[in-house]
Amino acid sequence: MKRPCEEWSDACVDAAEDHINAPFASHLEKCDACREAVERLRDDLELLKPDPSPVPGPWLAKSIRHKAEAERERRPSRLLLLAPAAAAAAVLVILALIASWTAETVDSPVIAEAPSDSTPFPGHDILQPGEDSTLVLNDIWEEDWGPGVYGLLAGADDDDLIRILENIPP
């Protein structure tokens, strides 16, 4: 079995779903491998296609609205309780980071260092120069990080996130 042409891989998907475009149509006339790939993909999608799904009941939207409104009414009081503690904790963390950074800067001579290939966090590549931080943020999933770290990272600004992933002090 020949492999389909790599540059047409996305067009194979469209064609298998009956959205074939003109350039790919003319390519298909000449390429047996791509034609075979489209047929195989169509066949596989037919097998993998799940049964039709029922629709959620009409009560669902109202129920969610009422619960969301109730939750929102509860929230401010909880925030009022948590905000001072969270602010104090954040100030302590920032002070500790600044202190350790200042100590390192004062104590150690400046040494030019090649960028490290490893990241302090498992499973994530370090940001490369010029890489869009949004891509990094988009690559954070609860299943990779666990709910605690995920919550922290998902709530962080892009700049904070780059610092966390690159382990750069503020």
Binding site: P54, A61, R65, A68, E69
Partner: peptide
């Protein structure tokens, strides 16, 4: 609150389909 309800109505089918087919269990999908 009506805006929240409208958002839910607009996207509930997609979310429900994903959840139901991922879990295979209608009783927990809602």
């Amino acid at each position: 609150g009506r805006a929240a309800e409208t958002l839910v109505r607009r996207h509930q089918k997609t979310v429900y389909r994903l959840v139901l087919r991922s879990t295979g269990d209608p009783s927990t999908a809602d």
